[in-house]
């Protein structure tokens, strides 16, 4: 990592130069105005200086054209910066569809990461270079915030919800990872490293894991909780069939619709009565206390893997390791 005084963190993601360019532009604009006003007020102080307490200034009251001018000019510049920055922001908050999925849970005071292949790590995140990575995360206790300065990304971890950040690393190396939302005693110790590796090295690193894939772990949990006794494949069970469900839109009993994403699945497992699919009775018990955050991502990965429809239930046992492949 760097030493001495530098003015920029490393640019290690595709987003970083975009954020920095915007940053430099605003630096230029603000420096211009700061200098303009400073030069003027200092110049006036010398030019119109007097020690005579009875001297008076020129009887100038104001100028409406000038007022309009210096209201309009900053406004136009502000609109320009707003448009540019909003454009960058939407790229920061919208992960590309084909992003590789990683899950994370923040708890006081550590970050746990889980890769779909089953690899787990704490306070370290291994990712391949050149591939978009999406980290979906939540918190087990209080607010946290996953912040990777070199990638220029950050989002709060909020208990009860999923947040995401995404990035495509552009150079291999090790980068800081911080908790940026105050979380108590060891907030400053809730830090770690992001290790960006070449694709082959990353694959080799994945292979060191003895764990079964997340989806397989999820399937085991799914079966041990007997979810399949209600969620029958043919759709005639007491709960809806789960094949091909992820990413689809469902009609709810209260008349609205919901997109089945990580957040909806999480809520349906923990607060099963909140948004029930139309045509089913609100009889699913809550699994609060039975499914922890780690188990939850397994279940979600498993349900995500059930894409191909009811007939291929048998095939889902041999799941693809990667859940994030394009549909």
């Amino acid at each position: 990592m760097q030493s001495g005084i530098s003015f920029l963190p490393e640019q290690a993601s595709t987003l970083a130069p975009r954020v920095d360019n915007l940053y430099f532009f605003i630096v230029a604009v603000t420096a211009f105005f700061a200098l303009l006003v400073t030069v003027l007020v200092v110049y006036f102080a010398f030019k119109y200086h007097t020690d005579d307490p009875y001297a008076v200034g020129a009887p100038i009251h104001g100028s409406i054209p000038l007022e309009l001018f210096w209201t309009a000019v900053p406004f136009v510049i502000a609109i320009f910066i707003f448009a540019w920055s909003t454009n960058v922001y939407f790229d920061i908050v919208r992960p590309p569809d084909q992003a590789m999925q990683v899950y994370s849970v923040g708890k006081r005071w550590m970050w746990k990461f889980q890769h779909p292949s089953g690899q787990r790590e704490i306070n370290e995140l291994h990712v391949p270079v050149g591939r978009p990575v999406k980290v979906t995360f939540t918190s087990e206790d209080v607010l946290h915030d996953l912040f990777i300065p070199a990638f220029r990304v950050k989002a709060d971890a909020i208990p009860g919800r999923y947040s995401t950040i995404w990035f495509t690393a552009t150079q291999t190396g090790e980068y800081h990872l911080f908790c940026a939302e105050y979380c108590g005693t060891k907030h400053a110790g809730m830090i770690g490293r992001v290790i960006v590796m070449e694709e082959t090295a990353y694959q080799a690193w994945l292979d060191t894991s003895q764990e079964s894939s997340l989806a397989a772990q999820g399937q085991a949990l799914y079966e041990s909780l007997s979810c399949q006794s209600c969620h029958l494949n043919d759709g005639n069970g007491r709960g809806p069939a789960l094949h091909g469900l992820f990413g689809s839109e469902v009609q709810l009993a209260n008349g609205t619709t919901a997109t089945v994403d990580e957040g909806y699945l999480r809520e349906s497992i923990l607060n099963s009565q909140m948004r029930v699919v139309a045509g089913y009775n609100p009889i699913m018990p809550t699994f609060q206390g039975l499914v922890d955050e780690d188990g939850m991502v397994g279940l979600i990965e498993y349900i995500k893997s059930l894409r191909t429809g009811p007939s291929s239930e048998g095939a889902s046992a041999s799941l693809p390791a990667e859940a994030g492949e394009p549909e």
């Binding site: 975009r18 954020v19 915007l22 940053y23 605003i26 910066i81 707003f82 540019w84 920055s85 909003t86 454009n87 960058v88 922001y89 920061i92 908050v93 300065p149 220029r152 990304v153 950050k154």
Partner: peptide, 8 residues
């Protein structure tokens, strides 16, 4: 105020 830089 500008979203793109504020995230960082």
């Amino acid at each position: 105020a500008s979203l793109g830089t504020d995230v960082h």
